[in-house]
Write a protein that binds this DNA or RNA. Structure first.
Length: 440
RNA sequence: GCGCAGGUGGCGGAGUGGUCAAUCGCAACUGACUGUAAAUCAGUCGCCCUAUGGGCUACGUAGGUUCAAAUCCUACCCUGCGCA
């Protein structure tokens, strides 16, 4: 197997655990926050800045890199990690999220996490919006995407997604799935789930095929050019790379429904071809904020304990505590970088809108006890000024802080599990974070 | 001094007799953002109130015409350009 997961310590009476995930490009201490670099770049940050912020692993996107610059070209440039000068562990998402974001959610402002009071949940029957403009259209065999870049049409099947991901060359890749909209009704969720399961099997089959035939010429190229991170070369780099094959994560769907979630967890965790199953699991799809916790528990009680679990696209601090407590090992989220670019900064006292007038001229750092590059060198007033002036550095400095904040929050939570004081840490963090946030 | 053009909400700039408290852009303010079509998007933006309604003050200043004026007339003040 291409990755190895070991559990170091478990939370008493809970699903939560701290562990180590060994990959061909280094060890990830879990739970871990995966930083999103969709187009092989964490937006506004150099790879060195990403690393300095404490990032252990980066996730890129199949669909985006397939369109630009093209997966063959990425392969030619030495693969995702080599191309972006990231020597550490990498992941790629399958494009399954784009089935949602460019399909049902296209131009509708629907987010993957919603409140149970959201009006879109009140619609009793699935309304027919097949005429609505969308860039992704779902068929049984795959999804046709209209490129947002040039309008060209691309048909992505599970096989194609896996082929692309093998070319991109990440350590961990995902099965092609359908991320459903939270506003879909149960009947649709069930149909979509059947589709996702069929696609999971096809993804697994293609993955096994590619791994076995795997003349990974990419690896030969990689061997010639040393990685920039020392930890990679430390233990027989050539051998590591020679035997390198990506690990495949299957994705559990099922929307908000208990029966579907549990069914999906069972089907995906038991799925195998010739004795070969998934190396890890993703928990995907839509949740109502209020019942995300129960959905994650339903799933993680069923998924095999010895394999890593990744909660896709989730990253609010309260959700990280929830997920970790319920047995999630990996999270990825665009929140630190997107919010950073849009002027919202994470702090222990809640979110800070740095453009607010009160921060003009404020010479203090974002957080006085923060160890990030931004806080050690720049003031709130300066960052506020950069935002008001629409300077590029604003997004960079803010993203550095936010990435550092969330990555290190998860590291601290991990440490609290090892130290046996998870519950205390959770309560003290959240009471301060939420209380102050509410006051604002 | 003469000629021409023009003075509109923080700024730029529409409007040229009623549907104008005044299009729009910028700035400002507030809020969103959860496997990134996002350095994006949405809302507010004269004052006051017993606010899906009502009142008041406003389009350089002062008068005037009219049922009705940012819009027409007169005078004055100011700005820009041109000519002396």
């Amino acid at each position: 197997m291409s990755i190895k997961f070991t559990i170091e310590k478990k939370l008493d009476g809970k699903l939560g655990r701290a562990g180590m995930l060994e990959t061909p490009h280094g060890v990830i201490e879990t739970p871990a926050f995966v930083v999103v670099g969709t187009k092989a770049t964490v937006k506004s940050l150099s790879t060195e800045q990403v690393k300095e912020a404490g990032t252990q692993v980066v996730l890129a996107n199949t669909y985006h890199l397939y369109l630009q610059p093209g997966d063959e070209l990425v392969k030619k440039m030495g693969g995702l990690g080599k191309m972006m000068n990231w020597g550490g562990p990498t992941m790629t998402d399958s494009g399954g999220f784009q089935v949602f974001s460019l399909g049902a959610a296209y131009k509708k402002g629907i987010s993957k996490v919603i409140q149970v009071t959201d009006p879109s949940l009140m619609i009793p029957e699935r309304f027919d919006d097949s005429d609505a403009p969308r860039l992704a259209k779902i068929g049984q065999d795959g999804v046709s995407f209209t490129s947002h870049l040039d309008g060209s049409v691309h048909y992505i099947t599970p096989e194609k997604s896996i082929q692309i991901q093998h070319n991109l060359g990440a350590d961990m890749i995902f099965a092609f799935d359908e991320c459903t909209s939270p506003s879909e009704d149960l009947k649709y969720q069930e149909e979509a789930l059947e589709r996702t399961h069929a696609w999971a099997l096809r993804s697994l089959s293609e993955h096994i095929k590619l791994n076995e035939s795997g003349k990974r010429s990419l690896l030969e190229e990689e061997r010639l050019v040393p990685r920039s991170f020392s930890e990679v070369g430390s233990d027989g780099k050539g051998e590591t790379l020679r035997s390198f094959q990506p690990a495949l994560f299957g994705i559990v769907q099922g929307g908000r429904d208990e029966r579907l979630r549990k069914k999906s967890a069972k089907v995906i965790s038991e799925m195998e071809i010739d004795g070969k199953g998934f190396d890890g699991f993703g928990i995907g799809g839509s949740f109502a904020k209020e019942d995300m916790s129960t959905a994650v528990k339903w799933v993680n009680e069923i998924l095999p304990e010895e394999k890593p679990r990744h909660l896709l696209g989730i990253g609010e601090p309260e959700d990280l505590f929830m997920g970790i407590e319920s047995g999630v090992d990996l999270f990825d989220c665009v929140l630190p970088t997107r919010n950073g670019r849009n002027g919202t900064l994470f702090t222990k006292d809640g979110k800070m809108h740095i453009e607010k007038s009160e921060f003009r001229g404020d010479v203090r750092p974002i957080e006085n006890d923060c160890e990030c590059y931004t806080c050690k060198n720049y003031s709130r007033g300066y960052i506020a000024h950069l935002f008001h002036g629409k300077e590029m550095l604003a997004g960079t400095l803010s993203s550095i802080h936010n990435v550092h904040f969330l990555v290190n929050l998860v590291k601290k939570i991990r440490q609290s599990i090892l130290d046996g004081n998870f519950q205390e840490y959770k309560e003290s963090f959240l009471s301060r974070y939420k209380l102050t946030n509410k006051d604002k």
